[in-house]
């Protein structure tokens, strides 16, 4: 029985000689343990599931019942409501417009910063995170006093009103869109691709649209997604500036037709998720999204 112990000691010594061997051994033991999901992780998961899904379940139960049994009647009533249709249309319009505006402004800006104005990077980054520092309520009050009915530049009562809200939404979406686009740009070698394109005779516009945009399509899609959902769900600005968008309508209808309101909440939730999943699928299938650079640079 002495042989195994000798072998064991020898192995211990061998491990001690190899630099880093012990650390590696420890690390492998750790990962081995991590592979089995510990009990507390399951508990945390359960709590999270309950925390997130229970309100949704409660909403669904409330919205799809008369109080006693299951019915889709509140949903049909809600969908038939004029307010629902106009507010949803309004929100969709604002969200699509905001998303397009954000992409059209941010993508070329981020590209030029990466390509030529590296010195401006920190300034631009600071500007884009301002919405995190300035809460929407402040933005709303500021917009109201600058462009509201008591201001000499009264946009709210003019035909420019949609532009005002879009401007506000644009600012709120900046951090998300800039991050997403900028990350994608930094993952490709923008400068060399631009130079390669120029050497083949392409002008700046063609280079941007044909070479850069397809190379960062994944970033653009996720930026668009974040901008769209931010604008779709935005409440503070719309409510305080008096725009009857979908979130504002939902709050109102909850006040006097709660079951209809809850049914519509579930519908909007399902629609949003369907949109997110659809876009994610599209992005994954897009060619050229697996960006592999040629070699060491």
């Amino acid at each position: 029985m002495s042989n195994p112990s000798i072998t064991g000691e020898a192995t211990e010594e061998a491990i001690a000689i190899l630099p880093g061997a012990r650390a590696r051994e420890r690390a492998s033991r750790r990962t081995g343990r991590a592979r089995r999901t510990p009990a507390w992780a399951a508990v945390v998961l359960m709590v999270a599931v309950v925390y997130f899904l229970l309100p949704l379940y409660a909403t669904a139960v409330f919205g799809f019942s008369t109080g006693k049994h299951f019915t889709l009647q509140p949903l049909w009533d809600g969908l038939a409501d004029d307010g629902f249709q106009t507010s949803l249309q309004l929100s969709l319009m604002y969200s699509i417009a905001t998303t397009l505006l954000a992409l059209i402004v941010v993508a070329p800006t981020a590209y030029l910063v990466e390509l030529r104005f590296q010195r401006l990077r920190s300034t631009i980054e600071f500007l884009t995170i301002l919405p995190f520092v300035i809460p929407p309520i402040i933005l709303a009050v500021g917009l109201e006093s600058t462009y509201g009915i008591n201001s000499p530049v009264n946009l709210i009562a003019s035909s420019w009103a949609p532009v005002l809200l879009m401007g506000g939404y644009f600012v709120l979406t900046l951090p998300f869109v800039f991050r997403a686009v900028d990350n994608a740009l930094r993952a490709v070698d923008v400068r060399t691709l631009t130079e390669a394109s120029a050497s083949l005779g392409a002008g700046q516009m063609r280079t941007f649209l044909r070479v850069i945009v397809p190379s960062i399509s994944l970033g653009l899609v996720s930026g668009a997604l974040l901008a769209f959902t931010t604008a779709m769900g935005e409440f503070t600005l719309a409510a305080l500036l008096g725009y009857p968008t979908f979130p504002v309508y939902l709050l109102n209808i909850n006040g006097y037709q709660p079951r209809e309101g809850e049914a519509l909440v579930i519908v909007s939730f399902v629609i949003t998720w369907a949109g997110v999943i659809a876009l994610a699928v599209v992005a994954r299938r897009a060619p050229g999204t697996q960006i592999v650079r040629g070699g060491p640079m």
Partner: peptide, 13 residues
């Protein structure tokens, strides 16, 4: 015509 050190092929093409 120019050939770059890291090829600089357009990844989406």
């Amino acid at each position: 015509g120019m050939v770059f050190q890291g090829y600089a092929l357009f990844p989406n093409m």
